[in-house]
Design a binder for these strands. Structure first.
Lengths: 220, 220
DNA sequence: AAATATTTTTAGGTTTGTCTAAAAATATTT
DNA sequence: AAATATTTTTAGACAAACCTAAAAATATTT
């Protein structure tokens, strides 16, 4: 059974929606992620159900089957490994790699993924701090919390982002708050929930609530 | 104007046919390379002519326009750079890389090719000894001749292959005649044009006329 | 519960890239 | 040059992946 690139992209979209909630992924949610119409989604859901990659009940949304989940996980693994390659080996910035990885993840054959993984030294996280599942689909877990949930006096290290947009990533670069940056929360202003932090290189800055919600910190 | 992957593959096929002869590439020749029917080729030729990538006269075959040639050259550049990556960095054998590079060559965006090229150290030849055009489409030239044209007593180094099939490449591996292998032609047997050679590590062997026609040597 | 709004599906159409079968053009043989 | 063979094109279909517009189902208001 062959799986097309379009089908792979839908599987990934369904996976991402399902991560956030246990409820079935709805047509409209999928169409939003895929940037298509609801009608196109319904079309594709029928195909995916036919291939037993999702379980689909009309008007009730969909869930990945075991096989669908396996495929989606493999895709995310490929995507994130290529992102590591693009940043670590080719020198791309973390806000430039998504589009390219989106294409590279569909390349298949032989033991490409395994060899790439080995070449990169079996990385556990991608350039945005997202975990890379291993060959058996197991995810590395790392305790991290949004900066927004820390208390004054807490110390930690930037380990990930919620928002993956170029705008946000470039802003973080500008602030010197890439992955691995050390920070301490000095105070939170009740008025707008903005926070004052100190970086490990002793700079102080104020971050909006929006930034603090999209920035993950490993404390301790 | 967008160019699809299928269109790109046809351009490459036409380029390869045009390399061998100055005459226009014929429908049947293209269908043979592309493994499709003549009808499908005619269909595609119309599309490519519409986009000014080829000049097409009914029943007379096609030729690449300047733009078509530029695109085909860029594709071959990408293909061969990825082949270098796959062998040099990921450790694939020279007979395993074609299919993968066939997919990777269609990935586009940003300065991927340029960065890949730099990462690989601006290689001039791919793992099969084929030249890699530079960013401006210029080809490295290297004087080489089929082993079949050498004279007894001639010395040289294996620099390329005419036949790119797995079967041939693996046979060469088995004989220890990869790129860079040094050889001397001892004698040619008039009966079947087979040749006896000595390798630089002092092994003697007899190669069929077929092998000698498909193996390129740089003499001197 | 009826009316209204929203979501999802169906129906029918388009483009890309393929196919087979038949027709037209070109090339080769006698 | 006529007959035959080969090559190429046209005509008509098909699947994948999308679309719009209308219908059906579900959810929310009143």
């Amino acid at each position: 059974m062959t799986i097309t690139q379009a089908e792979e992209n839908y599987l990934k979209a369904i996976f991402k929606i399902s991560e956030k909630s246990d409820k079935p992924a709805l047509t409209n949610a999928i169409s939003a992620v895929m940037q298509t119409t609801a009608a196109s989604v319904t079309d594709m859901l029928k195909r995916l159900a036919e291939k037993d990659l999702i379980s689909y009940e009309k008007y009730k949304g969909v869930q990945l089957t075991e096989e669908g989940n396996r495929l989606a996980t493999a895709l995310i693994r490929k995507h994130r490994l290529w992102e590591v390659f693009l940043t670590e080996k080719l020198g791309f910035a973390w806000d430039e790699v998504h589009e390219l990885a989106e294409q590279l993840e569909h390349v298949q054959g032989n033991d490409l993924v395994g060899r790439l993984d080995a070449f990169l030294g079996h990385p556990k996280f991608d350039p945005h701090g997202d975990p890379i599942p291993d060959a058996d689909g197991r995810w590395a877990y790392r305790k991290q919390s949004p900066l927004a949930t820390l208390q004054a006096g807490d110390h930690g290290v930037v380990t990930g982002v919620e928002d993956h947009s170029s705008a946000f990533l470039q802003y973080l670069d500008q602030l010197g708050l890439g992955l691995g940056a050390g920070i301490e929360l000095i105070e939170r202003f009740p008025y707008d929930q903005s926070v004052r932090i100190r970086t490990s290189d002793n700079r102080e800055m104020v971050l909006s609530e929006k930034v603090s919600q999209n920035l993950y910190i490993k404390t301790g």
